[in-house]
Amino acid sequence: MRRALLSRAAPMAAALLALALPAALAGPFHLRFLAEILLLGTAVMSLDLLVGSGGLVSLGHAALFGTAAYAAAVAALHLGGNLLLVLGAGTGAALLLAALMGVAIMRSSHLFLLILTLLLGQIAWEVAFHWRAVTGGADGLRGLPPLSLGPWRLDGPRALFLLAGGLALAAHALARSFVAAPIGRALVGAREQPLRMSALGYSTARIRLRAMLAAGGIAGAAGSLYPFLNLYVGPQSVHWSLSATMIIMLVIGGVGSLWGAFLGSAVYLALQTYVSAYTDRWQLFVGVIFVLIVLLLPHGLAGAAARWRRG
């Protein structure tokens, strides 16, 4: 019993330390950078629910993230930056889109599902890009009010970092409980033996819908905060290339591990930020690293870490 408690408390403590240390020591640039890693990592982790548990490879995940970002930004522009309002607006919008996607993918699988989610995501992008009056078109939305919660302003990099960290922790706990709950097991079952699941009385369509809602809600929460890092949101946050980037991050980190998503987004963004300072060829680096991981570490960095820990 005590061991079990310890083994659960230890990662928690490590995570809190990982949040506390930078909060105390890092400068504004790095805090923002870490906050971005955490927010994107949270979205990637929600994608892991679909890909890792359900085998549902979506190329439309950025649409959920980006739609939430736009909804949150629009809400903030019109009603002010209240944190709960912003989170509610963004998450709600993402849930709506997720419900739509969940219904759409009920009968699709494999490449069909990939293309269907891509198409739906790109429709969202077209709307974001062309609906100038609301989304600002190609320019996106600037001049957002800073986040606030009652009397507190949450606009410094430290506050944003802690906010992102809190969200990531909460989202991780949610995702873990989802995977461990009957619905998470059913999602795995529907991936492994969809016919048998129907014969057992499970509706694979409803399983997928719920998985999509859970993933969409989490991605939406992360997306809601994303615009406030730079007080800007643009159509790139909805585009399928961000969906593809999320998949790259997920694979680098390790499909199916949940926490690997954060690792993957950290590695990717670090490459993007630091390698691009030295050479224009940073995408080449990302590509090579990605291919090497696919070739050598099919379970990503998280899988390698787990194997190493087991010895």
């Binding site: 085998g55 490879v57 990939l114 593809a244 995408q283 080449l284 590509g287 990605f290 291919v291 070739l295």
Partner: peptide, 21 residues
């Protein structure tokens, strides 16, 4: 298919940057 998609997408990222170069 998933592994093929990942591998070949990675290759395409590399090729794209090589061609840009």
């Amino acid at each position: 298919h998933l592994m093929q998609v990942l591998l070949t997408y990675g290759i395409s990222v590399i090729l794209a940057d090589l061609m840009r170069w």
